[in-house]
Design a protein around this nucleic acid. Structure first.
Lengths: 180, 180
DNA sequence: GCAGAAATGTTGGATATCCAACACATGATA
DNA sequence: TATCATGTGTTGGATATCCAACATTTCTGC
């Protein structure tokens, strides 16, 4: 393991910035949030922001990735099998994430959000597949993970379109019988 | 004015420490809270704690002073006269403060808390008296402030003893007619 | 009582953060 | 167009914070 622990100041500052950003984004449109707004709320210097993030889009990216990662709560089932329960939990995490975002104001960044969701899914799905088929070629596993992540994301879009007529659990369970 | 603005890192760190302490003190007895607990929660190094506070008693003192200061909300009436309304508001702030403390676990530190309350009151009362009688001797004003602060604190003890049979407002209004 | 563990304080060198200043871009106003 | 205000991004020197190590005190179990 390349375990090189990061300076706690870095963790703390990133957390302060991300928390402030998430907090602000529930009060303002993303386009109206300035870097000064964020650093003021976070009680850190503006220069320090640039020590951690390229720009505000980089922050958007990393903050959403972080939130989704927490939502997915990977630790809970990283050792479990690729069963229906795991599948349902992942799907529910996605829909929860999107619901929480719809309360904030990220209009115009749907494509960014979609990419973040698929990227995170891909990483997780690959690690599960890899454990199930340790000896298989990486290319095949990676492509499977990619396709599954697109599929899951697509399903979440479809679920949103059906506007809550059925719970995420019910929704995804209608397809799990066809997966193995 | 000797306005020398303090480094924002200092303000931020003190806030992190105090907030963590206040948070912890709602979950544990004061005597069971260690400095490591606080610094872990605050995400700061233990050595940094000692950069800001002598020890945990110093923190208790400063944290309670800060909370009481916020409760008193001095800015709101620092320009107002020493009328009944001001008097009632100060008294209410004290009882609110003590009520909030009774939910936390500071048993055994009643004397410390009492001293903090009187000290804060004294500062505020003196500034109000000084504005009302700018030309009077400081000794007299200071002694008046001291006596008033002891009196107000004593009234709050008496009010707590009467265990909520009457609101703080009603309680203190019964004596205001005798003050001028 | 005694030994081990855990908490308190302290220190010097390493590093993240701050500040002030700067150049540049953007948008509003006249 | 020109001007002013506001936001973005960058830099070098100053400073708060971190770390690891240490000595000391206080707690805990036997």
């Amino acid at each position: 393991m390349t375990e090189t622990k990061t300076d706690p100041r870095i963790l703390r500052t990133r957390k302060l910035i991300m928390d402030s950003f998430i907090d602000l984004s529930s009060k303002k449109e993303f386009k109206d949030i300035t870097i000064k707004d964020i650093t003021t709320e976070a009680m850190i210097n503006r220069a320090t922001f640039y020590y951690h993030f390229e720009d505000i889009y980089d922050l958007l990216d990393k903050a959403l990735t972080e939130v989704l990662f927490v939502n997915l709560n990977f630790e809970d089932y990283k050792d479990s099998d690729f069963d229906e329960d795991t599948f349902v939990r992942i799907f529910t995490a996605i829909t929860d994430f999107q619901t929480s975002l719809s309360n904030r104001c990220h209009r115009g960044y749907e494509d960014t959000i979609a990419r973040i969701i698929r990227d995170q899914l891909e990483v997780i799905l690959y690690s599960i597949l890899k454990r199930k088929h340790p000896s298989d070629a990486d290319e095949g596993l990676k492509l499977s993970a990619t396709m599954l992540s697109w599929g899951l994301y697509g399903a979440s879009v479809e679920w949103r379109r059906s506007s809550n007529t059925v719970s995420p659990e019910e929704f995804i369970k209608t397809v799990t019988p066809y997966l193995d």
